[in-house]
Structure formats: structure tokens, C-alpha cells
Design a protein around this nucleic acid. Sequence first.
DNA 1: CTGAAAGCGCTTACAG
DNA 2: CTGAAAGCGCTTACAG
Lengths: 334, 334
Amino acid sequence: MSRATISDVAKRAGVTKATVSHTLSGKRPVAAETRARIEAAIAELGYRPSSVAQRLAAGRSGAVGFAYPLNADESLGEATEVLGVAEATLASAGYALVLFGGAVDGVAALQTFTERGLLDGVLLGQVTSLDSRTSVLADGGIPFVLLGRTSDNSGMSFVDTDIDEAVEMCVERLVVSGHQRLAFLHEDARRSAGASRAVHAYERACARRRLRLVAPVCPASTRAGQEVAGRLLQQQGDVTGLVVGGEGAAIGVLHAAQHLGLRVPQDLSLVCLGKTAIGNLAPQELTCVDLRHGEQARQATDILLERLGEGNAGDQQVLIEPRWHEGATLAAVR
Amino acid sequence: MSRATISDVAKRAGVTKATVSHTLSGKRPVAAETRARIEAAIAELGYRPSSVAQRLAAGRSGAVGFAYPLNADESLGEATEVLGVAEATLASAGYALVLFGGAVDGVAALQTFTERGLLDGVLLGQVTSLDSRTSVLADGGIPFVLLGRTSDNSGMSFVDTDIDEAVEMCVERLVVSGHQRLAFLHEDARRSAGASRAVHAYERACARRRLRLVAPVCPASTRAGQEVAGRLLQQQGDVTGLVVGGEGAAIGVLHAAQHLGLRVPQDLSLVCLGKTAIGNLAPQELTCVDLRHGEQARQATDILLERLGEGNAGDQQVLIEPRWHEGATLAAVR
DNA sequence: CTGAAAGCGCTTACAG
DNA sequence: CTGAAAGCGCTTACAG
């Protein structure tokens, strides 16, 4: 009792495979009576079309790859949100999400799978400034959309968070609340395209307002946030407002303030770039700007699906507008 | 210039498709000289066998499904660890990991994909006591392995963390350090098989040692941990040792202690069930028992691969031995 | 509205 | 050691 095939159904309904196929796809009209017979046969046999066979015949795989390294502790919240949204969006369009996690052999695995025709399209996460994966995909002629962007994005579709706008928002809110002595704790600009862009945006925001520029490098971990903020607050005791890249580091800043006897937000205001489930682990609700990674994933997936559908959809380059989130770590300067 | 096929290679090398196929698979001997010609042709044409075609012909899909709902904020650390390990393990065996995230339509999606022959096997995460997904897979005759277990696991393979042993370990360590007034903050026993097992293990551990039983329900979030612990510590001021299910809640307990002016570990000791990247967000290093979710995922994947390989591998039921992790939140009672 | 047939790109007995 | 051919389970022009 192995699986029923389209031939079994056709035989039982007294028609040819072609007619069964067309009732299923709706690509050509079928008489109501014939259709009824076929549907009955399908039900009786418990027939399910084989995806693999459909794909061989149709020349598509029905699967989309999502390259997203899962080894980075810093992006836990982002990872689950982005993956969850992409999976749900793809599933409702009938596509399977094939996960590519490995950072090291990421390119090789991706290349293997696309070359072997297993993937109709690819979503690329954790994009770096010069991302070798883009050329692999472009060479393979396979549609792909970046979550993020590289330094040269001509001829590619991407959906990125608007980190420039987000940084500007943070500085503006702090300044409006009377803060003049700011600092920006950020990841090394060489580490990612986003980090680099954030630093430049911060420099511009300060220059425009003639603010002193203090921007120490700070890895995105809680431990690093605590250390860097601790050192900074002792050396530059006049700082009243902090912009921090990421919730992990922001939580570390709260720990540092705690140890120094500084109250947040009375003595020190803190705003954070990004809002994910990680924020729920903070001792106070973080005031932050939501970069909306979920929305980013949704739009990137939609764009990819669009390109898979017709094929003649042009490139789309989208920036997701950040949203301010009122928390409990920003107050007017005293 | 579309992709080269096996026929192109055969033509160019002056052999038949069969010979090309066999040089690739090694399933029958090929003369060295012939092999050289074929390999040259493959290189010149940049030929890659089509996975889809191979699968149709061979009757396998080369893909493994991983059902793991990504919506639960509480299991962020576990999710990324488990997915990362499973993906890497599968990739090195040449299998693709197809992600099924949705909790609600999880069963339906899984059923659809398995019925359509897209999945050779399935890894089932976030298993509940009565998990409807197991019957779907069993009916479909598709090999699967649980990460966790249900209430009746006969005829199924699973790899679970040994939560009973982990709870016992926590209680024992606290008691050895002189703590006699304990409490266990745990998720509702009805919520998952693991939670239920943990509660019973705790009850046994206390009964055996004639300890007072205090075990309030506490959702796995930081907010809940803070609230429940705050209430408990005010009402039962004599408690000196806490066992907490999950790092999110444990971090909340630390916040509560902080607000009540209790020092950890001097005034209050805390041990936590589970160790993931979430622990790095805590203000102090948590003393905990590592349930080793990564190891769990690795073994579950290996067992599944074994069953896919030969097919006559019997059921395997494995418990992962927990490991104690010394942190900074446990001290001898004063 | 429906059928007969070729084809998608492989694998695998069956012969030799 | 290699070839000729059937078959995996579908889809899709081409006819009627």
C-alpha cells in the first residue's frame, strides 16, 4: 500500500492523467461531472501530488533558502523574529524555507544547493559590506533579496532597516530632552555595514548640532556594555545621555549604572537602537527605537515571492521606517 | 545557456548517461580513462546534478523537516542553539533543513509536506505531553525523532534532557550548602511535559529530604520571575534558596532581590534550570545546570540520519545527562 | 471539454 | 567495464 499516484487516480476516475492534473491546477476547464468523479477518486485513494515530481516537471523547486548564521549570540532576538516571519510568509505562499545557518561554509553550501537547482530563490540575512554570497547567487542567476545591504547594491533588491534615521531619532530625542553631553556605544564600524552606517550617522548628527563627539567601540554583549559604559561614566562623568547599539549592550549599561550608583533615568538617560524580545530581560523597560526586523523580513519575503511569481518584477530597494518606543530610561536632563 | 544536464555530459564524453551517473555515485566500477573523460566534461560544462531529478528517480527528497515554533519569547536561547546545531549536522550529511515554525497550522503544514513526499524525515521540537504531530507522522510512515517526549513514547525515538536529574541536582547542591528553606519557581505543569516532570521531581526531592514544599507557578519571562519572586520573598521571608526554571525568570528573580535589598548569593541563593546564551544577559553569572540543548539536537539529528540511512535501525530513547555549571549565585547559608 | 504523448533529469535493473 | 531502456510522477504543448 504505497502512495497513490496521479495514474491511479486517473484510472479510477476513468480519465487521463492530463485531466487529473488540470483539475488540480485549474489551468484549463474541466466539466463539473468529470471534476466530481476525479475529486471522489482523490478522496478515496488519499492521493497527494508528489512535490518532487511536480517540481521536476515544472522546473521549479518550491523551496526558498534563507541564509542566516545562527551562531551569533548578539542577535538572538532578531534571529527568531526574522526566521519566524519569513517562514510564516513563505508557508502561506506554499513555499518551504530551507535554512542555511553555517557562517564558515555558508557560501559553499548555498552554492551547492542553488547549483543543484534545489532553491527557487534566496533570502540573505546578516549581510556584510562586501558579501561574497551575492556574487555566487548573481552568477547562478537565482533571484535573491538582501535583508540589509552591501556597499554596492546596484542591480540587487534589498530591504534594510533605516539605521541612519534611527540614530538621528535617538540623538534628537535626547537633545530635545535637554541632553548635551552624549555618547554612542557602538560595534566596531568594520564589523558590519550597519555598524559603519550608524557611526557615520551619529557623527553627522553631532556635527550638525555642534555636540562633542564621544563614540567608544562596544561589542554587542551585556558584558561589553557593562565594561565600556563603566569606564566611560567614570572617565567622562558629565555624560548624561547614552545611545547604545543593541539591547544586549544596553542591559549591560544598566548594570554599570547600578554599580556606580547612578539612577536611570534620573541621573543618566539611555536610548537603545533596536527592539526585540531581548528587551524583555532588562531590569527596566528600555526606551528605544524599533528597527522592525519582523516587518523587514515580511517585506523582503514578499519581494522575493513577487519575483518568483512573474519574473519580470524589477529590483526593489526598501528602507523600513523606524518607530520610536517610549520606555522608562529617558528623562529630561536635570 | 541553461544548465548542463547529464545527457550533455554523456554526449561530450562519448558515453551514456548510465556511465556518467555511476561515476558520480560510485555504485559500479568505471575505467580510469573513461572516468577521466567524464570528469573533464563535467568540469568543462560546469555540470551539477539536479537534486530534484535525483530525488524523483531515487524516491527520496534529501530534506529533513524541523518543526520548531519560533513564536515563544521564552525559548530564544534554546531555539537558536538547537536550530544551529541541527542545521550544521544535517548539512554535513548532505541534507537540507526545512523549517516549520508555525504553532497553530504546524500540524497541517507538516502533514501537507510529508504527504507530498517532500520530507525524508522529521525532527520534532517543543514537544507537548499529547502531541498530535506524532500521530500524523506515524500514520504517514515517515521517520521522526522527538526533541523531548510525550506521555507515551512507545515505538518512538526521542532525545530529551534529563530534567528529573537536573532538578535533583539543584536541590542537592542547595541542601549541601546548608539551605533548608527552598522554593521552586516553575512553569505551569499543564503547559508542557517537561514542566510537569520538573514539578514532580521537585516534589520527590523535597519529600525524600523532608523539606517544606514551596513551588509557585511562574511563567518563563523575566517580568513573571520578578513578580513571583517578589511576592514569595515578602510572604515567606525565611526562604534562602531558590530553584528557577529558565534563565529569563532567573534574571527576574535577581531584579526582585535587588529591589528588596537582598544580596545574591549572600542573602539568597539561586540556581537555574538551563543554560543558554540568555544567561549572558544576567547581572551576575547564574549558577545553573546545563541541560545541553545543543547536545540534545546533535544526538537527535544523528539518530534520524541513522534511520534514514539503513531503515532498520530500531527506536532509540536517550536522556542527555545534565551538567552542573558553577556561577556566582549560590553560596553556603549563613 | 478531453486525450495521447513527449518530456523534465536523473537512477537502476537487465544484458552483454 | 559499458550500453540500451524503462521508469520515478508529474506538466504541458499539440490535437481533436
